[in-house]
């Protein structure tokens, strides 16, 4: 059948793979790697592993490779990411979404033509992880930087990668107008309902009643408003666009999100329209939950408020125009 190779040094022991494996062949370990994390262990035998790759799909740290019964790699880490190990906390799914973007660009043969823009927030160091030309932008301004880069290099693929504080709060104006102008860029928007980098303050996307360091008694929507549904808001614009929301909290959702990201870049590659994919993601550290509890919280609390799916596609006539 198959087997997997866990690169111990990359593993942060978050256990997302433990949950993802349909046959329970991965378990939490007790040995620490050189970075101090208790790395996971593959306890199955080749007869048991079906080579389904869901463990690798769930891994935020590029730490798992999957082989089939003929010892052929069926899950290969993308060359769209550098070898640098990310600074993200265990169980944070930024790493997952980085990989999806890189995989899609590699698959589409676009790595050499892409200019990415990192935001301010947890993913501020994304330029260390994406293996192609990268800007680091000021807080919230990534869509403006992307506009400038795309207008300067219309034949390149330009995307921003932004969190909820960066995009929905300080950069609300930039994203709104980039979308409304129909800039031929792609925006990957990570929504984890909190400010991560600064240590867990309320974001525009924080859920009602959610405790953060600036809403210690839970978010009071009478005082701070309702969580902002950015995808829905952008979908109301008359300008043609591709607007979708996916999730990264589990393997199944991650695979669907990959399709959304691919379609987004396809719209850009065809010079068709603005494309935007919101991805629900986890922040175990600032939510005060274990990685897998955090995944459950996305499922139970976020998805009902932030429904998944495609909110808007360019109309066929707009595609022609």
């Amino acid at each position: 059948m198959g087997h997997i190779a866990i690169e111990q040094v990359r593993c942060k022991g978050c256990g997302r793979c433990v949950v993802a494996c349909p046959k329970n062949l991965i378990e939490y370990g007790t040995e620490l790697n050189e970075r101090g994390y208790a790395y996971v262990i593959f306890k199955g035998s080749p007869e048991q592993c079906g080579g389904c790759t869901l463990c690798a799909v769930s891994c935020p740290d590029q730490g798992i490779e999957v082989y089939n019964s003929r010892d052929r790699k069926v899950f290969v880490n993308t060359t769209g990411l550098t070898e640098v190990m990310t600074h993200y906390c265990p169980g944070c799914t930024h790493g997952v979404v980085h990989r999806l973007v890189a995989e899609v660009l590699e698959e589409m043969g676009l790595l050499g033509r892409t200019i990415g823009i990192a935001p301010v927030g947890c993913s501020v160091l994304a330029y260390e992880y994406f293996n192609f030309d990268m800007f680091e932008a000021a807080h919230g301004r990534a869509p403006a930087v992307a506009t400038g880069a795309k207008r300067a290099r219309p034949d390149r693929i330009v995307f921003t990668y932004q969190g909820d504080g960066d995009l929905a709060s300080i950069g609300g104006n930039e994203i709104l107008h980039a979308a409304n102008r129909g800039e031929k860029i792609t925006v990957i928007f990570l929504n984890n309902a909190i400010y991560g980098m600064t240590g867990g303050q309320m974001a525009p996307t924080t859920m009602p009643g959610q405790k953060t360091t600036t809403t210690p008694f839970g978010r009071d929507t009478a005082d701070t408003g309702q969580p902002l549904r950015v995808a829905e808001m952008l979908a109301t614009l008359a300008t043609p666009a591709f607007i979708a929301r996916g999730t990264s909290h589990d393997a199944k959702g991650t695979l669907k999100t990959r399709k959304l990201i691919k379609e987004a870049f396809e719209h850009q590659a065809a010079n068709r329209c603005f494309s935007f994919v919101e991805v629900l993601s986890t922040c175990p550290t600032n939510w005060g939950l274990s990685p897998n509890e955090a995944s459950d919280w996305v499922e139970e609390t976020m998805i009902p408020y932030y429904p998944l799916g495609i909110l808007k596609r360019p109309a066929p006539e707009a595609v022609k125009a």
């Binding site: 200019i115 823009i117 800007f135 932008a137 000021a138 301004r141 403006a144 930087v145 992307a146 506009t147 400038g148 880069a149 795309k150 207008r151 300067a152 290099r153 390149r156 104006n173 930039e174 709104l176 107008h177």
Partner: peptide
């Protein structure tokens, strides 16, 4: 641009793209 803030960052993007 939608604002001077955006305008200068568009310049940043274009200048960075050479």
């Amino acid at each position: 641009a939608e604002s001077e803030v955006a305008a200068i960052h568009m310049v940043y993007g274009a200048a960075g793209a050479g």
